[in-house]
Each structure stands twice: as structure tokens, then as C-alpha cells.
Design a binder for these strands. Structure first.
Lengths: 156, 156
DNA sequence: CTTAGTGCAAAGCTTTTGCACTGCA
DNA sequence: TGCAGTGCAAAAGCTTTGCACTAAG
């Protein structure tokens, strides 16, 4: 992967966003966003992102990856996912992809694969919570653990 | 708090459970479960549990707290909660308390308080997922972030 | 030029592990 | 008495930070 190979439009938007926020456009920042952009739906750890970027830009440092991840997260360009396995994972943000605005995770306990799915069901729930408890929901994180189709079939 | 002050019945059940599993009954294990039992709905870190137990049993070691937490979790007596603040938290398990079998968390972004609520809504969702995706849900974790009643009122 | 951003290495943090000792059964 | 359980300290492993250097604007 080389900068500019894919999503040039998205990339320009990113550069503008950086400039708008008084931040500098660096190849490290672009490369990291690019790596994540080219892998929608994948959930990468900092180390994995580091390795992927390093393949193209061997000079990058792990600390920069961590700092950039933080930055991208603050800019709402990427989403965090914690699977309680000791790593924090990141994926390119929902808001940049057409399909989904409500997006949850199905985690297979056998193969470890992660599936995404959309659902509006929680909107009812959030309204109900507002009425019952006076709690105003702003964001949510839903993780469903179980057994995926493939693993179920394999056992049969 | 002293061993035996509260929930003696629950405590006997715990001792039996340990024996049944070929595990030894130690004052450390009882004290840790006791601390959590006396604080239903609170979400304590290992360090917090350590400090609470230490008040009564100054000899206890932090490593024992970690090992016992693991044990209690394996025995399904306590539930894990990760708020992504660098600590893993624990609370006395749902299965030991009458009220709830479906139990989610409302986390206030302003005061940090955590509220629990029950809901069966997800059962529909799980059925739908099974039908649509063939994914069999076994467990779920739902965290809703927002603003609690108190914090909303305070601003008014 | 100016200073935000970077790379490197060291430090920080929670959590885990090794090992000798203790105490439950 | 025998071995699971414990306490202590050290190790582990992810993430953050300090600092001198680099490069964006």
C-alpha cells in the first residue's frame, strides 16, 4: 500500500480536517489512516497497525502509532473496541462508511471472528430508559458473544 | 467488616462450592467474596478490593486478590466490567441476586456513576440474529453512555 | 524560522508469575 | 503430613512520556 492508492477523496478530507484543527499533515498520519481505511471491519491492535505501516514506511515508531490512534479517535475517525484480551483494537469509523450508523459486534467464542451487524432496536430501548430513569443515552457499545454459523456447522 | 457478619447463608454456600470443586476454604477467599457481597452494584477494581480486605486482614497480598478474583469469576460468582479506564472492575454476580438475570450498565459521562438496569429486549434481538445470521448468542455485554438524571438536573 | 510531530528508549501501569513458606484438609 | 494456597518481589506486556531531532507550514 502506498499513500494515494486508494480513497484519495477520503484522504483529502482527512488532510483538510487536520488543517482545520491546526494539526500538521504528516505521512505517518496519512499512512495510519490509510491502513485502517483499507481494512474496514477489521479490528487491529496498535502493534498490528504498526507492522502494517512499517512494511511501507520502516522508519515509523510505535509511539507515533499510539499517538496517532489517539488523534484519530479524538477526531472520531476510528472506533475503539476492547475484547478484554489485553489489546485495544481499532477500526475505521462508522461515520465514514455509508452502511451503518448503528453497529454492534458479534464475537465468536470458538474461532474468535468478529461480525458486525446493524440494528435500530436500541433506539426504542434508549427512549424507554429516558422515560423510566431520566438517563439520556448518547452512545452505546454492544458486544454479543456466542457461536458463529461456521463453527456451528463444523460441529455438525 | 468481619467474616460472618453478613450473608452467612451465602457464605456457607460458597464454602460448599469450594469444597465441591476440590478447592480449599481460606479466609482470604471468604473475605474477598464478602467485600464484594456487601457492595452489590458497586464496581470495584482489584486494588480497591485489596484495600478493603486489607483493612480487616492486613496480611493479604495483592496477588491473592488477583488470583481469587479469577477464581470467583470462573465460578461465576462475580461479573467483570471493563470501562476502558485502565482498570478491570468486578461486582457480585447477577446469579446470586434475585432481581436480575439481564443486567446492563448505564455509565454517566459526567459524574462517572454507573447505573444498572434490566431488560429483556435483547432476547428478541438474539432470536433475530439467530434467524438472520445463524449466529447463536450465548452472552452479551451492553454499555450505554450518556448523562444521568442528576447531572441533567444540575445543569438546569 | 518556529514549533508540532516524530523516533527512541525509558518509565508507568495493571496484572501475572516464580518461589519459598504457610496452613487447610 | 502433603499439597493447594499465599505473600513477596520480580517479570511481563501494553501504553505513555521525556527528550533531542526532524520536518511541516
Amino acid at each position: 500500500m502506498k499513500i494515494g492508492d486508494k480513497m484519495p477523496n477520503n484522504q483529502e478530507q482527512f488532510k483538510d480536517l487536520l488543517r482545520t484543527n491546526g494539526l500538521k499533515v504528516t505521512y505517518q498520519r496519512i499512512a495510519i489512516l490509510e491502513v485502517l481505511s483499507n481494512r474496514p471491519g477489521e479490528h487491529l491492535t496498535a502493534e498490528e497497525i504498526y507492522d502494517l505501516v512499517k512494511a511501507e514506511y520502516p522508519d515509523i515508531g510505535l509511539a507515533t502509532v499510539y499517538r496517532t490512534i489517539q488523534l484519530l479517535s479524538d477526531l472520531n475517525l476510528i472506533d475503539k473496541l476492547n475484547l478484554d484480551d489485553g489489546y485495544v483494537r481499532y477500526e475505521i469509523g462508522r461515520k465514514n462508511r455509508e452502511e451503518c450508523h448503528h453497529h454492534h459486534h458479534l464475537i465468536c467464542l470458538e474461532c474468535g471472528n468478529i461480525y458486525a451487524f446493524q440494528d435500530d432496536l436500541l433506539e426504542n430501548l434508549e427512549e424507554r430508559i429516558k422515560e423510566t430513569l431520566g438517563f439520556e443515552v448518547e452512545d452505546h457499545e454492544v458486544k454479543l458473544y456466542g457461536h458463529c454459523k461456521e463453527c456451528i456447522n463444523e460441529k455438525a
